[in-house]
């Protein structure tokens, strides 16, 4: 097993062409886990990907190309992983900082395209669900809630969950 690869810092990369793979140590202080997930996912069509913990709280990303490859291709792939990690980490930060504007734009664009529900949508709506829970009696009419009750009338279970039990 080779422990280093030209162009990468010493100790960052483990390279094992015979077993068909390589791994990169990723500093957890620089890259959030969501960036590591995002970058690793980009490779699953070309590689078998495995994540692990490394020393010092770091992460390790293992890539093993699905098809046989040479050292140069593995180097290019690891370089691409590095670039994708940076891109995902930055994007995660942008998403946090600009969350409100991103959400507003997405909501406006999708809302504009979806429009209001039409009759077809209402037809497709399932009204057969059981009565929803209404502990405050909001769905009841004033008469139902406060009007004079007939002693013989059975109580609506959902409407008066906190009613006193009758003697």
């Amino acid at each position: 097993m080779s422990s280093s690869l030209d162009g990468f810092p010493e100790g960052q990369v483990q390279f094992d062409l015979e077993r068909g793979g390589a791994s990169v140590r990723v500093d957890a202080g620089l890259y959030p886990l969501e960036a590591i997930y995002g970058a690793a996912y980009v490779f699953i069509d070309r590689c078998f990907v495995l994540l692990d913990r490394a020393d010092g709280g770091a992460y390790r990303v293992w890539l093993s190309p699905k098809k046989a490859t040479d050292e140069q291709s593995v180097r290019a792939m690891l370089g691409e992983l590095g670039n994708e990690l940076l891109s995902c980490a930055w994007r995660a930060q942008i998403a946090k900082e600009s969350r409100s504007i991103i959400e507003a734009v997405t909501a406006r664009a999708l809302g504009g395209a979806r429009g209001a529900p039409g009759l077809d949508d209402l037809e497709a709506f399932d009204f057969s669900d059981e009565a929803f829970d209404d502990p405050l009696g909001i769905a009841m009419s004033w008469e139902e809630k406060y009007g004079k009750k007939k002693a013989e009338e059975p109580k609506a279970e959902a409407a008066e969950p906190d009613a006193e039990p009758k003697p």
Binding site: S87, R91, I94, I102, V105
Partner: peptide
């Protein structure tokens, strides 16, 4: 997928 693409192509969200 449509929602994901609207986010992915929003230049305010893109490094």
């Amino acid at each position: 997928t449509v929602r994901a693409m609207a986010i992915a192509s929003n230049l305010d969200a893109q490094p």
